[in-house]
Amino acid sequence: MIQIPCPHCGLRNETEFHYGAEAGVAYPDPNALTDSEWTKYLYIRANPKGWLAERWVHFAGCGRWFNLWRNTITHDIGPAYLPFTTQPKSPGNFGQEGSEA
């Protein structure tokens, strides 16, 4: 049972949240894309081994969506940030390529 740092409610157990996969995938203009590009938006999401910026929604609490960095190997949690704010640097990106915590 990991804890997720909701920016509004603080650290809460993961069962209060729903997972939203990779963060920062904006809804594109559907009419400007080929089938290949459109389906990339539909179906491809990052799946890294290491730090991932991902989305969560606190459905059992404030109901708000937010993003955070999390390490998919260690489950360490990095900075959380609200939608439409600047994404903080990945905790792993400090001079190390593909670092695994």
Binding site: M1, A21, K49, E54, T72, T74, H75
Partner: peptide, 13 residues
């Protein structure tokens, strides 16, 4: 479990 992971462990709940 509900989120992406390579840790080969899950939550106890």
């Amino acid at each position: 479990d509900a989120f992406n992971s390579y840790a080969q462990r899950g939550g106890f709940h």
